[in-house]
Write a protein that binds this DNA or RNA. Structure first.
Lengths: 253, 253
DNA sequence: AAGTCGATATCGCCA
DNA sequence: TGGCGATGTCGACTT
């Protein structure tokens, strides 16, 4: 039978008193565990922007790297959050004569100065998760994979294309692939892993412009956008600026 | 004393057998609750790209809107996920002679076709959260707020500026603010809530180009980028293209 | 359903 | 640390 290793543990409190919740949370955070709280709370944020969220039942997760996430029952993104590197504090707010006590979870950082405060009036569950995760994810189908594919078989772009550099620097930024065509003309290639809109065309145009100035060339620099497909508007913009399009996808595996 | 309303409930299983976990999860999902699982699992994804994640302890959340999130103990973003609108299924994978049973959580959708599979070999906690959250968040400090600020006090942009339209359509997209200066020249304003780089300059240039063609005007269209600040490279690009910059921030509150 | 663009975007890389 | 661009970006809004 499978035995649980001693370094994988979960502690759960159901409907704890606020003081018990505070103690368990503070202990879990100090022990670098992942902790969660579910309960009735309000949320205030102030930093790059400011937000307020009235009372409701939410799920809060604090990670040992300083991340905090507040999730409602809808949406993929947290309704409020704080990025890795924050400091978490947990304390009880003493109730005045006519107010109830509250459990206050606060997360702050500097650069930029930001503060998130979650105030619980009722805690339904507190959990402390201690586990191990040595594995890292492997992802296939990225722009990087598309680049490798073209560098391996440059003819996929067009017959006679010769890659000369990747990430070639220009005054406007780094070009994905820089090379020359069979006639020796300079070619700028911008890669996108998926269907592209106007922004990708602008990006390519920026690089072509910059390279033409940089090379001080009289001959025009060719610009080729490589993506699975383009939108109508992007296609029009490409024509308007004398840029080209080649349909290619990242390898599926 | 505060009494918990009957619609706010939490059910927790600690170290359940896989079959008990399956039943509780399936029941919670069918009852439109938010459910979480913590345990040792592998994760496979196939859709817009493909990913694999080996065995480790992770926290999985399924929301009633079809969202699924897989969190490790690091990072703000889930290591794997599926957006709202997916279908969740939970089932036991029967173990072969030399393999253990597993609890398999699968989430699929179409358009695009995507599948996420989380396979648990050990479950340390299953929770079912039923709560209420009627409140919606209020956020201040967005680009929209910056736009309102300028429309209220156009002189903030420059003396004599007159806004004529917001979201004015051009062949290259919609212009944030379209107006004219004290001399009657057409002005395109692009707004950004924070410090901008080259992409914002390209965007503004796209609109100015499109509007000049669209207006069939001999007189040039002025382009003004409004943001708290610009990077060096963006500043250079602005000069290169005869575009202007005005420093303004969204209102703090 | 697809296009377009903002976002407290986040994240990783590199100077 | 800031600049820069990719992202399985997400999400809101419009067509």
């Amino acid at each position: 039978m499978t035995r649980t290793e001693p370094d994988t543990r979960v502690d759960t409190l159901e409907r704890p008193a606020l003081e018990a919740a505070r103690e368990t949370l503070a202990d879990g955070i100090s022990r670098e565990a992942l902790v969660t709280v579910f309960g009735r709370c309000t949320v205030d944020y102030d930093g790059r922007a400011s937000s307020e969220l009235g009372s409701g039942d939410r799920h809060v997760m604090c990670k040992p790297d300083g991340t905090i996430l507040v999730h409602t029952d809808e949406g993929q993104k947290p309704v409020n959050w704080q990025p890795p590197g924050c400091e978490h504090t947990v304390e009880l707010a003493e109730g005045e004569a006519d107010t109830t006590d509250a459990l206050v979870l606060e997360s702050t950082r500097s650069t930029p100065e930001e503060r998130l405060r979650v105030t619980f009036t009722r805690v339904l569950q507190v959990s402390v998760f201690a586990g191990t995760d040595e594995t890292s994810i492997s992802l296939v189908g990225t722009e990087e994979d598309l680049r490798k594919r073209i560098l391996e078989t440059p003819d996929l772009l067009e017959s006679g294309f010769t890659p000369l550099a990747t990430e070639r620097a220009t005054p406007a930024g780094a070009v994905d692939i820089y090379g020359e065509d069979s006639a020796g003309r300079a070619v700028v290639v911008e890669l996108k892993r998926r269907r592209v809109g106007p922004d990708a065309v602008s990006q390519l145009r920026r690089y072509v412009d910059a390279l033409e100035r940089d090379l001080h060339a009289d001959a025009a620099v060719r610009g080729i956008l490589v993506a699975p497909s383009v939108t109508d508007r992007a296609s029009r913009l490409l024509s308007d600026h004398g840029l080209e399009f080649v349909s290619l996808e990242p390898p599926a595996e």
